[in-house]
Write a protein that binds this DNA or RNA. Sequence first.
DNA 1: AGATATTTTTAGGCAAGGCTAAAAAAATAA
DNA 2: TTATTTTTTTAGCCTTGCCTAAAAATATCT
Lengths: 217, 217
Amino acid sequence: MTYSEENYLKVIYHLSLNHSKGVNTNSIANVMESKPSSVTDMVQKLAEKELVIYKKYQGVSLTEKGKFTALMIVRKHRMWEVFLVETLDFSWDEVHDVAEQLEHIKSEKLINKLEEFLGFPTEDPHGDPIPDRNGKIAKIDKKLLSEINAGKKVICVGVKDSSPPFLQYLDKQQIALGSTIEVVSKEDFDLSLTLRVDDKDVTVSNKIASNLFVKTL
Amino acid sequence: MTYSEENYLKVIYHLSLNHSKGVNTNSIANVMESKPSSVTDMVQKLAEKELVIYKKYQGVSLTEKGKFTALMIVRKHRMWEVFLVETLDFSWDEVHDVAEQLEHIKSEKLINKLEEFLGFPTEDPHGDPIPDRNGKIAKIDKKLLSEINAGKKVICVGVKDSSPPFLQYLDKQQIALGSTIEVVSKEDFDLSLTLRVDDKDVTVSNKIASNLFVKTL
DNA sequence: AGATATTTTTAGGCAAGGCTAAAAAAATAA
DNA sequence: TTATTTTTTTAGCCTTGCCTAAAAATATCT
Ligand SMILES: [Mn+2]
Ligand SMILES: [Mn+2]
Ligand SMILES: [Mn+2]
Ligand SMILES: [Mn+2]
């Protein structure tokens, strides 16, 4: 399994969580920052190896084998992110790029020992669930903050976008995983929200609110 | 810098420690388990990038830039080996292959944070010195056990061969880094040695003795 | 339905990093 | 010194993973 094949499987896995049908060529190319023709090439190779199911012009989906492989990569990615934050004091906006490299290290023993050392974490620093060694992944019950009505109190449990600028914005507003957020009011005009986070009022745009996952109490 | 280029630089670095002149094509090919023609190709590419000095038929040597790059890879390799043994409880014969992968992870911050977490170790689990972040590497004063005369007491400080079979042999004989070894007698015929390690007598062949580094008291 | 636009695939090419076989240079032996 | 062997380089080929341009299939609009 090459580095490149692993990245394709991971991207197909992530895309198939939303687009419940077959994943289309163009969306893979967009995420991979490559060209549709390259995607077609690789997808045909993955189909020969029985990692994906592919019919011309019909999009692609993972086989059980392909899905398991993808989950193991996601497992490693998120486990390493926990290590970087918890053990090496990285901040949550610095870990993704390094984890993109570390997720390709091939050693079952390494990931299992690391998991043990970290105390069997179930979520990564962005609130995403970590698959266990059998590929089982918890479904975390969460809603977007943008779907919450005024007057409700919720807890921040994750981010949809985990790009550094967004995470740094949250740091600046002192919104972190576990923060209690009260939706004070919602503006009809632009759907912006006024929140109370730790006794401080903050106004956030709809774009912000639709990238924050929360749990109702 | 690709994975492959990094491996070439590392191999050239290790070979140039012994073969004090230019490193020859064939020895690189042997270590890399590739063919001399492939080595010539790559060496020419490295010369263009000013990482090595190369004249046809004259062997190859590292430039300052190439040497620093090689040292940073060695630094990462050995630091990760310490992590695997100290933090994740790997045994010293299990770490090399994983470290071969981890040494290519690109993040200065990662290696420096890891170094800090590990308490700035100066040697890896096989007794080899770890270069610091400026590329400075300690020269450890050590001799081969095979050079020690009968009657002397020494301390085991490293291994020359760090292949799993050899390391496992040492485990079985309960010889570890830090063990005190007394050379009881040396057999003229085959240069085998009788040792006293922790109040136990062991006989080892010359081959074993010439792969163990020791420090005289 | 028929025309047009979009998506996807195919065809052909390129760079990296390998390989084998043959040629050239250097080292060694006679 | 000349002949032979060994080492090294060159030439040409292959696979992987990417690309562009063109062709084919599918989707959308009138
Ligand atoms: Mn990530
Ligand atoms: Mn994450
Ligand atoms: Mn090693
Ligand atoms: Mn080592």
